[in-house]
Structures are given as structure tokens and as C-alpha cells.
Amino acid sequence: MCHTLYIKNELSELARLYDFIDQHVAPCIANKQTVAQVKLAIEELVTNIILYAYGEQKNQTIQIEMECQGKRLKITVTDSGIPFNPLEKKDPDLSLSLEDRPIGGLGIFLVKQLMNEVYYERSSEKNIFTMIKDLS
């Protein structure tokens, strides 16, 4: 089963993303905690793309595709923004004290921690980010 959502690069569009997750992603997942983890990973990735992929350009499109393959959930997020591989970003230093902790930098780290597999590809001038969650 496959569903696709197209949103614009505006934070207000996250409301449509949450609805999409509730309607199409959550029903594939038996475990409530897993739903929250997947929702968090998708939110983190898509928020980053909204904020950084298109610079000052408005009204740009982000595609979110979900595919439920029985025991596997595959989410693919595609944008036509600047080339950016989130996986190249260094993990934050979680041992830093309160004074030294920067505000931010956790989004991609959470995606990597919460999903079983993550892949990035740059193809035909698009960033394609794939995340897999094992549902077994």
C-alpha cells in the first residue's frame, strides 16, 4: 500500500503532514510507541527540508511517499532544493553540559536513532531521503 503527499516549503504545512501520518502511516503500525517514533523521524526530516532546502524561494514542493510492505514501512522524502545529504552532518555531542549544549542540531540524529535504515541519494537534481522502519 502506497500513499503520497505533496506539501509546500512552509512550516504551516506540517499540519497536513501530521494528518497524513495519522491517516495513512499510523494504521500500518500496531505498536503505539513505534507510531510516535516514525512520526518524530518524519517530522524532523521534513522540518529540516522546509527550513533549509530552498533558501529564500517560496512555494516549492516537497514530496512524502509512504509504502507499507507488511513488516516494513518505507518513507521516501524528495525535494528539488540545494544538494544536501543530512547523513554527512556530525552527530551532536550529547555529553555536553547545560551551558555548552547548543540549541538545535538534534533533528537528523533522532532520525538515525529512530529508524532502522536511512539512505540518501542525489538524482536528477533532487534530494531523495529514504527511511525504513522494521515493524516486526
Binding site: 510516535a36 512520526k39 518524530l40 517530522e43 524532523e44 522540518t47 538545535g104 538534534l106 533533528g107 533522532l110
Partner: peptide
Amino acid sequence: DYISSAGLR
């Protein structure tokens, strides 16, 4: 029920 990195921030 739910917190993302924006909430942690």
C-alpha cells in the same frame, strides 16, 4: 504524549 526536537529546544 509526544515531543520532537523543536520541543526539546
